[in-house]
Write a protein that binds this DNA or RNA. Sequence first.
DNA 1: TGTACATCAGTGAACGCGCGTTCACTGATGTAC
DNA 2: TGTACATCAGTGAACGCGCGTTCACTGATGTAC
Lengths: 190, 190
Amino acid sequence: MRKSRQDTEDTRRRIVESAAREFREQGIDGTGLASLMAAAGMTHGGFYKHFASKEQVVEESVALAIGSMVDAMERSLAVSPGERGLNAVIANYVSASHRDDVGDGCPLAALGGDLARASDGVRDAAEQGIRRMIDAIAAELDDRTPAAARKDAMVLLSTMVGALTLARIVKDEALSTTILAQARKHLASA
Amino acid sequence: MRKSRQDTEDTRRRIVESAAREFREQGIDGTGLASLMAAAGMTHGGFYKHFASKEQVVEESVALAIGSMVDAMERSLAVSPGERGLNAVIANYVSASHRDDVGDGCPLAALGGDLARASDGVRDAAEQGIRRMIDAIAAELDDRTPAAARKDAMVLLSTMVGALTLARIVKDEALSTTILAQARKHLASA
DNA sequence: TGTACATCAGTGAACGCGCGTTCACTGATGTAC
DNA sequence: TGTACATCAGTGAACGCGCGTTCACTGATGTAC
């Protein structure tokens, strides 16, 4: 039962989108192609009509996940630029709701270790996202030189990713929330 | 071929130690019991003479990995306390050599996402390590109130873990090194 | 202290299972005339 | 525009393989007398 070109394109996009969610929720090694295809509403046999290997869908879904996160940040900063807008982006990132929504959140925090161990293609996709995030943050730190802003942006991003990672590991709600709150407070005064 | 009680104890410790390394290097899901036992110099059948399940060795090896890292930090701070000693600990953590030695390094950075997804027992072990790290860092921030020191320590730890995670994902040596250098510089002046 | 027996750490083969990947088949879609 | 055929997205079964786990067996160690 062949599908129309539009259907095929839609299906492919749907697989990448649900894969991006599944990988963040269960890890890359923890997500099988069968469950990944089931999440996209198909049987696993059809996977290879769209991708050459698991590696390829990992690469594309990591690129999509990090890309759409940076897109959202840039859109938010375009509407509300400067220190005020940057603080909003940070508060949104370092928040309990982001912590509790792994599947839709930042892949750097959800898959940090997995990404460091991943193939070159996957790491390239992640690195491109990291560069875009650094640039997006640095652009709003306009009270210092571009070089200083870039360097400060790296530290900011490190704190954001680290705080979210720790807050997700910690089971104690009080400690987890405090870690997020302290990071938010610290970053707002930078 | 039964072994002496001493041998048995030694073997068990050896398995946990090499497991701690393997998990950090290949991820938890990425490490099979067979390769884990092979790394300890045994065949995989003997595993269940020492542990009830894979989960148990994960828990013990995460506890060991994070525990011995904090031990090392505390020893270093006992010898050289205060701001100077803390800066040395930070410089050691946020370094290229730590970045390149995943197997012997901080499990929070190596297994961040894996730990957040792990069982309660594993997360408890990780959380205990996080609390000890926060306390060890806070104890050296003696120019502020204990409550403020604890809060600042959380932010410091977040930046350390985040910077190491990002530096490991990034393939470009220049960017990776710059991320580490900026985090180090920023943390030294806190 | 020496002997006889029970224990049990470690081996290596096997278990069922899910993995990533392949393939024969299907039938609606796209193409050629 | 209508018909005949080729294409190919998706299905579902199967491939070999490594996973976590179990088990019969071994022989040196530990225990009882």
